[in-house]
Design a protein around this nucleic acid. Structure first.
Length: 584
DNA sequence: GCCGTTTTCGGCCCGACTGTTTTCAGTCG
């Protein structure tokens, strides 16, 4: 775990313990906010902590939290947190993960029935120990039993590709229902986050009275394993794959307000509502209303100022329409957002494998696949010799392969085929081929594949050495992380960005949904730091090129513009950049 | 606990659904 994630987890745990001990809820929220703020940092929190006042500059981190972060970095623990842990049984926080169980109920179970973990909860239910506790009726107890069973089936977060395909199939189903006017998916999947905890969809009806009948039809979605909640305007379900999906039914006249609301992020929504409030208005999922001090204006016939589209709501708040990918409360309402890169801007794939190493396409098939996507350039970059598991090429095989690529380049018209290699960066930062061999290639993508558990210091030194190598043009999947799998390296990203800018090296966003490496906050650091980006599909098979959409989403989350992404450049500009000798 | 071109004290977003309730608390997003 990176140090940032470690400290974020610490504050999240702190918040849970505060909830369970009945602390002021705003204190709880404040701790959660600190956790999110640290997760959103590209910089190492320890580096910031070293400079006086830097931590306190971060929105949501005040004097108290900054002091605690420094205390943790210096001593490895936080006294206040340890004191709290001593008061609460260690198994209690896991009870909060159960659907429908919040701090109040968990506290009740603990104090009235001596329940301190999930095992104890199961036993207490089986022994009938919960019956008779005030506030716990028969149905609530049944609901808790159900939640325990569900937790065993629930898969947790899923990757963006799985989330997207599930969301798209739900939307297609909703659009086909009688009475449905419009349907879209929202939530973190619309924002392009690398993983999703659930699927959020909305569907509109012409008249409010049609919502309830449509809600009943939503329950007939074939993918449903269990209906978790079924109201007139909201249906929550668990799919057979263990993924939760929430469907909201809204009047079509409020579709924009609902889409804005359910796209989030929660933090972005809070900023928008505060903005509305500051000008005497109120924003909810039904629209932007004049604030008359009373709740639920939509139920009292108050006409909205804006509701039909996201654009008109943003405009009424004095903002341009903001792309969903930047709605994270990372400055999007206070700094101008440039025109972000789009999928159609991509004109080249610079990281691809053939049957020579571990790909499934011949050189010519690969070139045709890239051409079919309208690309002007494809780089053949098979694995280097150390990647034995991926059938990496020996020096001799590489030189033969280069000849085969040049032969194919003569045959296939309408696209430039470059002879390159994805060269392993060894643990100490040396490259996997000698300089003379590297000099024979058109393009070198240097990537780490092994020793992915080394220290941040070693990882930084290793990657800096690779960036500085005169043959290297692109740093491939810089951290080697696997989404929902392996943590990968935690280098000093700011230092990498600075070196990449100096040596004119592009940092890759590997578009494969299992990688998405660089990740969004790193892209933002690269863009802010003046480095170039390369979006590549790491193509092994024809369908891999379709993953470009996820790379583009990640780039957009990092505020990347097409001008800074080498794959978006014209053939002339890209080829000149690739040929240009780096300064030693 | 954090924050301030109304404030260094007194606020801190808003609504839906469920269950245990005679009017609301807890949970969730």
């Amino acid at each position: 775990m990176s140090r940032n994630d470690e400290i974020a987890a610490l504050f999240r745990g702190f918040a849970e313990l505060l909830e369970l001990t009945g602390a002021n809820r705003f204190r709880v929220i404040a701790h959660e906010k600190v956790a999110r703020a640290i997760e959103g940092l590209a910089d190492d929190v320890a580096t910031l902590a070293g400079t006086k006042g830097k931590l306190e500059e971060i929105e949501g981190i005040g004097e108290g939290s900054a002091a605690r972060i420094r205390e943790y970095l210096a001593s490895g623990s936080i006294a206040d947190l340890e004191a709290l842990r001593a008061k609460v049984p260690p198994g209690l926080p896991e009870l909060l993960q159960l659907q429908g169980l919040g701090p109040k109920t968990v506290k009740l179970l603990w104090e009235e029935a001596g329940v301190v973990d999930v095992t104890g909860l199961k036993a207490a239910i089986a022994a009938g120990k919960l019956a008779g506790i005030k506030g716990l009726g028969e149905r609530k107890i049944a609901q808790i039993s159900e939640a325990i069973a569900l937790a065993e089936r629930h898969v947790g977060r899923i990757r963006i590709d799985a989330a997207t395909s599930l969301a798209e199939s739900l939307v297609a189903f909703l659009r086909g229902l009688p009475g449905a006017v419009r349907a879209e998916f929202a939530g973190s999947t619309r924002r392009g986050r690398e993983t999703a905890g659930d699927i959020d969809c909305l569907v509109s009806v012409a008249e409010p009275a049609e919502a309830a009948p449509l809600a009943r039809r939503v329950e007939s979605w074939p993918a449903i394993a269990k209906v978790l909640a079924a109201g007139d305007t909201k249906v929550s379900v668990l799919t057979a794959d263990g993924v939760q999906a929430d469907v909201r039914i809204v009047p079509d006249s409020a579709f924009g307000a609902a889409l804005l609301y359910f796209t989030g992020s929660k933090e972005h929504n809070v900023v928008l509502r505060e903005r509305a409030q500051a000008s005497g208005r109120r924003l909810n999922e039904y629209g932007l209303f004049p604030d008359d001090g009373k709740p639920a204006p939509q139920d009292r016939g108050v006409a909205p100022i804006a509701a039909r589209t996201e654009e008109e709501i943003y405009a009424a708040l004095g903002l341009p329409w903001l792309p969903p990918e930047v709605r994270e409360d990372r400055g999007e309402t206070t700094h101008p957002v440039p025109r972000l890169v789009e999928l159609a801007d991509l004109k080249a794939e610079l990281h691809a494998h053939t049957t020579a190493s571990d790909g499934f396409l011949s050189i010519e098939e690969l070139a045709e696949a890239a051409k079919a996507r309208g690309f002007h350039t494809i780089a053949v970059t098979d694995h280097s010799r150390s990647s034995v598991q991926a059938n990496g090429l020996s020096r001799e095989r590489l030189l033969e392969h280069v000849e085969a690529v040049r032969e194919a380049a003569r045959k296939v018209k309408g696209i430039t085929i470059l002879a390159g290699s994805e060269v392993d960066i060894l643990a100490d930062g040396r490259l996997d081929y000698d300089d003379e061999t590297l000099a024979r290639l058109d393009l070198v993508v240097a990537s780490p594949h092994t020793a992915l558990r080394q220290s941040p210091e070693d990882a930084t030194a290793r990657l800096l050495r690779a960036i500085a190598h005169p043959a290297v043009r692109i740093l491939g999947h810089p951290t080697g992380r696997i989404t929902l799998g392996r943590e990968g390296l935690s280098p000093d990203v700011r230092a990498l960005v600075e070196a990449a800018r100096t040596h004119d090296v592009a940092l890759e966003i590997n578009a494969h949904p299992a990688r998405l490496d660089l990740r969004d906050v790193h892209v933002r650091a690269a863009i802010d730091g003046g480095a170039l980006i390369s979006i590549n599909c790491d193509t092994h098979a024809r369908e891999d090129l379709a993953n470009a959409r996820y790379g583009v989403l990640t780039a957009r989350r990092g505020w990347a513009t097409a001008d800074r992404i080498v794959n978006c450049w014209s053939a002339e500009r890209l080829h000149a950049w690739i040929r240009r000798k780096k300064q030693p």
